[in-house]
Amino acid sequence: MNLTAVDLFCGAGGLSAGLEMAGFRVLAGVDLFEAAGKTFEATHPHATFIGKPIEDLTICELLEVTGLKRGELTILAGGPPCQAYSVYNHQRGMHDSRATLFREYLRIVEGMQPEWIVMENVMGIYSIAGGAAVRTIKDELGALGYDVKEKVLKAEEYGVPQERRRVVFIGNRVGAPVRHPEPTHGDGLIPYTTIKDAIGDLAPLENGQDLGPIPYATSPSGDFQRFVRGNRRKVANHAAPRLGKVNVERLAHIKPGGSWRDIPFELLPAGMKRAKRSDHTKRYGRMTWEGLSCTVLTKCDIHWGAYIHPEQDRAVSVREAARLQAFPDWFEFSGSKTDQYVQVGNAVPPLLGRAIGMTIFDVICEARTSPSLAAA
Rank of each mutant, 00 (worst) to 15 (best):
E266A: 13
E249F: 01
I302K: 03
P349M: 02
Q325C: 04
T288G: 00
A270F: 10
V316H: 03
K276M: 09
V248D: 02
R354P: 00
E320G: 11
I356D: 10
D279W: 14
G258T: 11
T298Y: 11
T298S: 14
N346K: 00
S317Y: 06
A306E: 15
L251A: 01
N247L: 07
D313F: 13
D279M: 13
R242S: 15
S293F: 04
D339P: 04
P349V: 02
P310Y: 07
T288P: 00
A321E: 06
L351K: 12
D329I: 00
P310I: 13
V342D: 07
P350W: 03
G335C: 05
R286Y: 05
L352W: 06
G285I: 07
L292M: 03
A270N: 04
V348Q: 02
N346D: 14
F333I: 02
D313G: 08
V363R: 00
H238C: 06
D279E: 15
M272T: 10
G271W: 12
V296K: 02
L324V: 01
H253W: 15
F361Q: 15
L351R: 12
A306D: 10
I360V: 10
M272A: 12
S278G: 03
Q312K: 11
K234S: 11
W330N: 13
W289C: 03
G345M: 07
F331T: 14
V316N: 01
K337G: 01
I360D: 01
P349N: 02
E311P: 00
T295H: 02
V318G: 09
R283N: 12
I364F: 00
I263F: 06
R354Y: 12
D301Q: 05
A315Q: 13
K299F: 09
V342Q: 15
T281K: 11
Q325N: 06
W304M: 08
T298R: 14
A306C: 14
I364G: 01
E290L: 04
H280T: 01
L297V: 13
W289N: 02
W304I: 11
Y307D: 04
Y307F: 15
I302F: 04
